[in-house]
Design a binder for these strands. Structure first.
Lengths: 213, 213
DNA sequence: AATCATTCCAAACAATTGTTTTAAACATAC
DNA sequence: GTATGTTTAAAACAATTGTTTGGAATGATT
């Protein structure tokens, strides 16, 4: 199968380069030369650069959404009486994220960095695509989140979830650079797992912070 | 004075367009036609597009840094015995941010959006420029931060401050898109000021979260 | 072996980018 | 009023962008 090999080589190269440099700053020529394929291959297999960007996202977001929906459904069937608590809910999300790289070859940090880019780079087509493609999984997650935080108004809950997402995406995307800094300045080694351990209490405390009036 | 007028018109137009679309996605022709000046004026007055980007930042970041240093100094003189607490510290930062638009014509949301872009868009030249230009204000802030959180180890403090910065930068860089979503789904209008009000308790709680072992 | 659709490749395409150039317009000083 | 230096204007510049093209290679099916 020469076809799928070329397609995957393009996706692999694009994924890394997009994560490193952003979308506009990554040219098709960079991608194809890193993937060792012909320049025209991108337009032949994907149709356009925008379609390639969407394909990069759906390759890791589709398994993640599928995992998440399945896991949420599974756990909620055992919680028919009481809602799922926050810690369990966050645990489900993180475990589903960690599951994806095991299936494909995408690293967690690349995963999160791309997720962050999708949010910050105002690529209109991407945002629309993601919204209509994964709205079901997102709404499902939000439903359980709503039940787990009844003390919050819907507006406060929305924003705090965004804060959480932002913190995670940003930290994960810059984790290598920050680890280097801290290793130089304090002679302490920080693995991704250790950073996540530090991150979770931060997020949980923020999410449950007293409301300001 | 035709000169300074042209310069300011370019800065005004560039500021808005950069905040709306990002740096790479904004061409000099968009800027100059919005500013009603000739295309060559940018290279004449600023030298290059990168220099223009830096000029846009320094126009509002310099007053901010000045405000912040002055305010930190002023408050710390009244706290000779005990350190400044976190809430006050974060309050100083946000109030200094809000002060700048009153001095210039830049809106708070544009200000914050640019700040977020500076952090998330990996423009190498920008990051270096900002670091060496405003390291004094940053170090000053860090010193008070250290005194305000004596219960944290330096490693924990380092990470939590990164979490904070990440949350802020991320939220600010995607604030308009998120405001649109929440306005559509919940019929609630969210100004930047309101989002900041929601952000501060989240950050403060995260910073002071109990340590995990 | 011949036919077929699929995939690949080198080249060219048109459009857009940041930057530079040339001359004209302008203001200021003598 | 002439001279001098500064700012604007329009055009052209070279480089890079995403995309398209026509034909060559490929590989499976008959």
């Amino acid at each position: 199968m020469a076809q799928s090999d070329t397609v995957n080589r393009i996706l692999d190269a694009a994924e890394v380069l997009f994560a490193e440099r952003g979308f506009s700053e990554t040219s098709l020529r960079m991608i194809t030369s890193k993937a060792n394929v012909n320049l025209a291959a991108v337009n032949y297999h994907f149709g356009s650069k925008n379609a390639l960007i969407q394909a990069v996202f759906s390759r890791f977001l589709s398994p993640f959404a599928k995992n998440l929906e399945a896991e949420l459904k599974r756990v909620s069937e055992r919680h028919t009486d009481k809602p799922i608590d926050i810690e369990t809910l966050l645990g489900i999300v993180t475990s589903c994220i960690v599951m994806v790289p095991a299936q494909s070859k995408t690293g967690v940090s690349v995963f999160m960095r791309l997720l962050g880019l999708a949010y910050t780079q105002s690529q209109g087509h991407l945002r629309k695509y993601l919204e209509q493609e994964y709205s079901r999984a997102f709404k499902m997650f939000m439903k359980h989140m709503r039940e787990a935080t009844p003390q919050l108004t819907s507006v406060d809950r929305f924003w705090r979830i965004q804060f959480m997402l932002g913190t995670t995406a940003f930290t994960m995307s810059s984790i290598e650079a920050l680890s280097d800094i801290i290793e130089n300045e304090m002679q302490v080694h920080s693995s991704t797992e250790e950073v996540v351990k530090r991150l979770v209490p931060f997020l949980a405390a923020g999410l449950q912070a007293p409301l300001q009036n």
